[in-house]
């Protein structure tokens, strides 16, 4: 319940923060993951750099076909933003499934992504949305695709001293249908599996399918085999079933108290079917 002693700073300026991170500081975003593990003494950073006061990291804006969300934008801000709801509804839907009211009030999109919990909700949608992460450190900035960003369980492309500053999300095609479907772990509220689907149709055919999966494997991933199977089809129930069955292809499933590997795999298929059905039905 009580964390180890640490030094704390709360810079208001990004540059200043990056400087402190370069000298070994641990970034604190919403704290929804970091603080519990510090309290359980599973993490003991010597210096915590609170990013909560950097106003320049909290925004949602639209620019030339993309939405830009500052890393410190909270789940509630995403969930309730009229801009996100209209321009990128999948992200808003995913945000609304995270944790609970209080967690969504504090948790941030950058913090969630950087933590890379394999059972977190966001990464499925971030994968399906093909977002880009803007990363910054004292030595400069770079942009990384979501697929390159998530490396492994609790492991990302972030280098020491580097943080996410922004998530860049393509504005959704207004005719696209999207859905996030999640099997909830009854104790923690995390995803046993969560599947995000985006479908675009044209002339009665699925022209684009994007499927992001969380909870199943060591990290969130794009189910490309499933996408390929669906693209070019009419998106009938049979087409969806075939695609959903492929969602776990090439993934070694997690196993724990709440779901064995086999069950998780099967549930990934079921929830992929559900997400795809809803997305297909919503696509116009």
């Amino acid at each position: 319940m009580i964390a180890h002693i640490f030094e704390y700073s709360a810079p208001t300026d990004l540059k200043e923060a990056l400087g402190q991170l370069a000298s070994g500081g641990k970034p604190l975003a919403g704290g929804m993951s970091l603080i519990p593990i510090m309290k359980l003494r599973l993490a003991a950073p010597e210096h915590v750099v609170d990013l909560g006061r950097i106003v320049a990291l909290n925004y949602i804006r639209e620019e030339a076909g993309t939405l830009h969300a500052g890393a410190m934008t909270t789940h509630y801000q995403i969930e309730s933003s009229p801009l996100v709801r209209s321009r990128c509804p999948l992200l808003a839907e995913a945000a609304s499934h995270i944790g609970d009211v209080q967690v969504r009030n504090m948790g941030t999109i950058g913090g969630s992504a950087a933590h890379a919990d394999p059972a977190a909700d966001y990464p499925a949608s971030l994968m399906a949305l093909e977002v880009q992460f803007r990363l910054a450190s004292s030595s400069g900035e770079r942009t990384v695709s979501v697929e390159d960003f998530f490396v492994d369980t609790f492991a990302t492309a972030l280098q020491p001293g580097e943080i996410i500053t922004e998530v860049i999300i393509p504005v959704e095609d207004p005719s696209a249908g999207v859905s996030y479907q999640k099997m909830v772990q009854p104790a923690s509220g995390y995803a046993i599996v969560g599947v995000a689907a985006r479908i675009t149709k044209s002339g009665g055919k699925v022209t684009k399918a994007r499927v992001g999966v969380t909870g199943l494997g060591p990290k969130a991933f794009r189910a490309k085999a499933a996408e390929k199977l669906l693209e070019g089809t009419e998106g009938t129930a049979a087409d969806i079933a075939k695609a959903a069955a492929a969602v776990s292809e090439g993934v070694e499933s997690n196993t724990d108290l709440h779901a064995s590997a086999n069950y998780r795999t099967q549930m990934a298929r079921v929830y992929a079917g559900r997400a795809l059905s809803v997305a297909v039905s919503r696509a116009t």
């Binding site: 104790a187 923690s188 108290l257």
Partner: peptide, 16 residues
């Protein structure tokens, strides 16, 4: 004890 926290021991919640 594998269910050593409320993260793993599932109490009834309002929604369930």
């Amino acid at each position: 004890l594998i269910t050593g926290e409320l993260m793993d021991y599932a109490l009834p919640r309002a929604s369930r």
